[in-house]
Design a protein around this nucleic acid. Structure first.
Lengths: 175, 175
DNA sequence: CGATACGTAGCCTTGATGGCTACGGGCAAT
DNA sequence: ATTGCCCGTAGCCATCAAGGCTACGTATCG
């Protein structure tokens, strides 16, 4: 490699992830990323097509991290959902970005797989996909509202979460 | 009223709503709004503090419209959720914006009220709030993923929706 | 010497501010 | 009652700052 590279795509994405969590989506500017990796802003375009592509890459990295966390559980419904919520707590902006950017199918599939397996056990192979969508939609919606500062009608949010989890398990079981 | 006004806050918010749906959040620029209401961009700042405030106002208008739609149903769980989904189909960008902006409590409360009532009937007054959060989270998550182009693992999305609705009703009933 | 990574300069768009002008109603003096 | 001034409001023009992005030059290594 001629001219020793001062940065790399990986470093850029990692910096983007950190900046995203620190300053939100708006704070993630090409300038800020360039400064953090020790380079001028235009140089980033040698590694990333444009800002949208950078956001997509950061989003994909978030999905990958989520998948890894899910794979680190025992595969039970409760553990999976709690791991999902834990991820959102640690990387709230990454969670939000993930939802607004369509991730590539393969990364998405890796994250979806353990959920599908758990749902197949609970609801049967036939209904596994529908059941997974039920659980995923509930968890995603709950966490999203929690992060957005919803749930302002009082009550204990953790209690609502456990209530939902219990009812979800019941909903998936045999009629 | 001195100096006949060429526009008003209401007209600005309405224009913002239309532009949002046409061009997404990024397309909603002060310039575009100003052009549509027949004014120069700086003049908007006499009516709205800044772009963030405009987005918040448009978001609040979306919540209000959703509340009106929910109030127009018969109050059953199915009707409420279908009305929610219909709103999201008609105003996808408004739906997204609504989720990312924390709406003022009163507007939120108006939209939440019919859901709370339906859930009180199904799950009892005790669990009404938790039940409403369960239903709202599921519906919000489902619709959000649907709009974001999730659900790419095949299968019939409408079928998954009806499956979820049926299971949700079962989950809320007595054990 | 050729390829590659980075930098400098600059363009365009967009958000935002400041200062100016035009309008029109209220108030007081006549 | 009429007249004339004051002042608040709304809009415009000029302008700035910041950010995304491109074109092109330059340095460095194999």
């Amino acid at each position: 490699m001629p001219s020793p590279e001062k940065t790399s795509r990986g470093a850029i994405v990692a910096a983007g992830r950190d900046i995203l969590e620190a300053g939100g989506r708006e704070g993630l500017t090409m300038q800020s990323v360039a400064t953090r990796v020790g380079v001028r802003a235009p140089s980033l375009y040698k590694h990333v097509r444009n800002r949208a592509a950078l956001l997509a890459a950061v989003s994909e990295a978030a999905v990958a991290e989520l998948a890894a966390r899910l794979e680190g559980t025992d595969g039970s419904l409760e553990e999976l959902v709690r791991a999902y919520r834990g991820f959102a707590r640690d990387r709230p902006e990454g969670f939000r970005l993930m939802l607004s950017q369509a991730a590539p199918p393969e990364a998405l599939g890796r994250a979806a797989d353990p959920v599908l397996r758990a749902c197949a056990q609970l609801a049967g192979e036939q209904d596994a996909l529908d059941a997974a969508r039920l659980v995923t939609a509930w968890a995603t919606g709950f966490i999203g509202m929690e992060l957005a500062g919803g749930f302002r009608l009082g009550g204990d949010v953790d209690r609502s979460f456990e209530y939902g989890l219990a009812r979800m398990r019941r909903a998936l079981g045999p009629a």
